[in-house]
């Protein structure tokens, strides 16, 4: 491949990425204002200033846009925890706190949409659904990371090997936190911060006792 054409390929890839994020940003803005269900692909295309067909090229359905966003959210949270040097020596409860808190802060501007996505996830057949392959793939990636943190804590002697512990317990806990967060009316989501802190401490203390 000539130098010129490889440059062109790079440019194309970059353009593609820009278009993708433009579509996602437009969709999220609309989800937040109009709601997930009421938002049409047409409206997304108009807001992103692309043809409706282009939207379909990138994302076959609205759920795919949502899924893409959730993927970003999870990647961002895992990367943030990984990059934080100070956290490396922190106790497991703080690491888990930082992980979930980073996710919530990422989600905060899109609260309304998350509420809708939550409902969608419970609808059979939805791509966001708990048993849809694409959603599960993301969930596994997330839980593998949690498991990594737990394993590390066991290695450091912060936790004894907890036989009944499975990342799925954490997944259910995470969904509970999300629900709590969605319903938290306190300014700055104060109650969620406290709940997250206390429940993680108690949870880890229970694990430690085994």
């Amino acid at each position: 491949m000539s130098r010129n054409s490889s440059q062109a390929a790079g440019r194309r890839a970059r353009n593609k990425e820009t278009t993708r994020s433009r579509i996602v940003a437009a969709a999220l803005a609309l989800f937040q204002v109009k709601g997930f269900d009421a938002t049409t692909t047409k409206a997304i295309a108009r807001k992103a200033r692309v043809a409706e067909g282009t939207v379909f090229n990138y994302f076959p359905t609205k759920e795919d846009i949502a899924l893409h966003f959730l993927e970003q959210e999870v990647e961002h949270a895992m990367a943030t925890v990984r990059a934080n040097k100070r956290l490396r020596k922190a106790p497991i409860e703080e690491k888990l706190f930082a992980l979930v808190q980073t996710q919530l802060e990422f989600l905060a501007p899109h609260e309304r949409f998350i509420g809708a996505a939550f409902v969608h996830a419970l609808t059979p057949g939805s791509k966001l659904g708990i048993f849809s392959p694409s959603a599960q793939e993301l969930q596994f990636r997330y839980l593998a990371f949690v498991q990594e943190l737990v394993d590390d804590a066991v290695r450091r002697g912060q936790l004894s090997a907890a036989s009944w512990w499975t990342p799925h317990v954490f997944w259910i806990y995470y969904l509970g936190i999300l629900l709590y967060w969605l319903h938290d009316p306190s300014p700055g989501k104060q109650q969620t911060l406290a709940f997250l802190d206390r429940s993680l401490k108690i949870g880890v203390a229970v694990l430690r006792q085994r």
């Binding site: 629900l179 109650q191 406290a194 429940s199 401490k201 108690i202 203390a205 229970v206 006792q209």
Partner: peptide, 26 residues
């Protein structure tokens, strides 16, 4: 203290968690 707090909830961890979940002030 944390452990003892958790033990104070012995047998009722789940119940308490649920209550915490639905009762915003715990």
């Amino acid at each position: 203290p944390l452990a003892s707090a958790a033990a104070g909830l012995t047998g009722n961890v789940v119940g308490d968690m649920l209550q915490r979940l639905f009762h915003s002030t715990s």
